[in-house]
């Protein structure tokens, strides 16, 4: 068995693993969004994208902090700065380069809509009070992220010829990375049994319905759900993009690990 396939055994290990999976998704996507700062198509979007990036990195930081407490690690930065790509547990969707504005919006819409259904379910399911409280707080912000990206999907889809072409292309490119959101591996199953996670397949059909409705309203073609789907990132088998992202994110902290940076 490779290290990738290690299955957490104790409740504490399972819980920590879930916190890290959620946190990694949010840190990496937050990083991609933060690359827009100062380069957005208009001032309002510089503001909105920075705001969403800030929320997502904030969510990840809170989740890491909780994981550090359970896992006896020094702090949230331990996870963000001192792990290599094979130890990151995020799905591949979030690590792809930011692309053009259409790509950023399409990805955000796919991720935020998934997060919306997930957090709605988790806030009803999770027994752990601190975790649940955190999710409830973040859920409020996710609603805004979803509204923002959904409105832009409509604008770009039903805007000009060029914007429709670009956002359609973005969805087509992103589609093969949506499968990982709904993968229920052994860890997720164990976590669901222990009420640290939930069976996302329960509402996959509702998510699809929501995606279909929005894309149709945006006059876009819904790509084929039954196509090749990328897999393996949760277990550390990432795309080649993640290593470069991490080398940028971590270089300063790792170059001077003994210095105080907080």
């Amino acid at each position: 068995m490779s290290t990738f396939d290690t299955i957490p055994q104790t409740k504490k290990e399972i819980f920590t693993e879930i916190l890290l999976r959620l946190a990694d998704d949010r840190l990496i996507l937050g990083h991609r969004l933060s690359e827009w700062a100062g380069h957005g198509p208009e001032l309002e979007e510089d503001l909105a994208l920075a705001n969403i990036a800030l929320d997502m990195i904030g969510h990840s930081s809170a989740l890491y902090e909780y994981a550090a407490k359970l896992d006896n690690k020094p702090d949230e930065d331990h996870y963000a700065y001192f792990r290599d790509d094979i130890d990151f547990k995020n799905i591949a969707l979030v690590e792809l380069p930011k692309g053009d504005f259409a790509f950023t919006i399409a990805r955000q819409f796919l991720f935020s809509s998934f997060s919306y259904f997930l957090y709605k379910d988790l806030t009803d399911t999770i027994d752990d009070e601190e975790f649940n409280g955190m999710l409830q707080k973040h859920f409020k912000e996710i609603k805004y992220h979803l509204r923002h990206s959904r409105e832009w999907v409509l604008r770009l889809g039903d805007g000009t010829e060029e914007s429709r072409r670009r956002i359609q292309h973005a969805f087509d490119e992103l589609w093969m990375y949506t499968g990982e959101m709904f993968e229920m591996d052994k860890t997720f199953e164990l976590a669901t049994e222990n009420r640290f996670y939930t069976d996302v397949l329960k509402w996959q059909i509702d998510w699809k319905e929501f995606i279909n409705t929005t894309l149709e309203e945006a006059t876009l073609i819904v790509p084929d759900y039954d196509q090749y789907m990328f897999t393996g990132a949760r277990a550390g088998r990432h795309t080649e993009y993640l290593g470069f992202l991490l080398s940028q994110m971590q270089f300063l902290r790792r170059s001077y690990p003994d210095a105080e940076w907080k």
Binding site: L27, H31, S34, E35, A37, G38, L43, E44, D46, L47, A50, N51, A53, L54, I57, G58, S60, S61, Y64, E76, D77, A80, Y81, Q248, M249, F251, L252, R253, Y256, A259, W261, K262
Partner: peptide, 26 residues
């Protein structure tokens, strides 16, 4: 320096600052 900030706290501080600047501009 947002993508290279040396801690999550400092990353958020910087992002918030840049966001404020977009707001000031607006």
């Amino acid at each position: 320096w947002i993508t290279r900030a040396p801690s999550l706290k400092r990353k958020m501080v910087l992002l918030a600052k840049v966001q404020d600047e977009a707001g000031h501009g607006l």
